[in-house]
């Protein structure tokens, strides 16, 4: 992967200018990447002026910023490969806190970080008379990444994911198979 610094970092820095470095207690190589945080609501509206805070695993703020009129905030980071998720490519993780007027605050845990990452966040609007508690959700972990993780750790114990035979050799002429 391009952008590899090759350095082994256990020390942590925060940066206000230029690429911020994601703090890590891991002795893993660091990589440069771009993260786009996109904030919207259930109606598909882009949420501008949302405040996004990225927190590293040592609990310190790494970077923060506001979304633009398209609901996007773009930041450049140096991240450390998280060995739990780096079976096929180096990936890091961060935690994103999102604040926007009129919406419930949302914390997104385990936001994956790669060379070029997108973190979609859907905020739920304040509803008068409701409790309007903050929301917690998970980052957009790719299903193929999840499968790789399962395979990797299962193999270490000599087990494997179940093989479900759900592959019909022919699709019926009127393919109306019910879905849950």
């Amino acid at each position: 992967m391009s952008g590899t610094t090759g350095e082994v970092c256990a020390a942590q820095t925060t940066s206000q200018n230029g690429p911020a470095e994601l703090s890590s207690t891991l002795n893993t190589p660091s990589y440069h990447g771009t993260l786009v945080v996109r904030v919207g609501d259930p109606t598909g509206k882009h949420v501008a002026k949302a405040k996004v805070i990225l927190v590293g695993e040592n609990g310190k703020i790494i970077q923060s910023g506001d979304t633009n009129p398209q609901g996007q905030w773009v930041t450049h980071l140096t991240y450390h490969a998280d060995p739990r998720l780096s079976m096929t490519r180096p990936l890091g993780t961060t935690t994103a806190l999102v604040f926007a007027k009129g919406y419930n605050e949302t914390v997104v845990f385990e936001v994956p970080l790669g060379q070029s990452s997108v973190a979609p966040v859907t905020l739920t609007p304040f509803v008068l008379g409701q409790r309007n508690e903050p929301q917690a959700t998970l980052g957009n972990l790719h299903h193929i990444l999840v499968a790789d993780m399962l395979d990797y750790y299962a193999a270490q114990l000599g087990i494997a994911r179940q093989s479900v035979s759900d592959l019909p050799m022919r699709v019926p002429a009127n393919n109306t198979a019910p879905r849950p």
Partner: peptide, 11 residues
């Protein structure tokens, strides 16, 4: 169940 959709996730 259908296809994994996540709003605003296009690259």
């Amino acid at each position: 169940n259908y296809q994994y959709f996540k709003d605003l996730s296009g690259t």
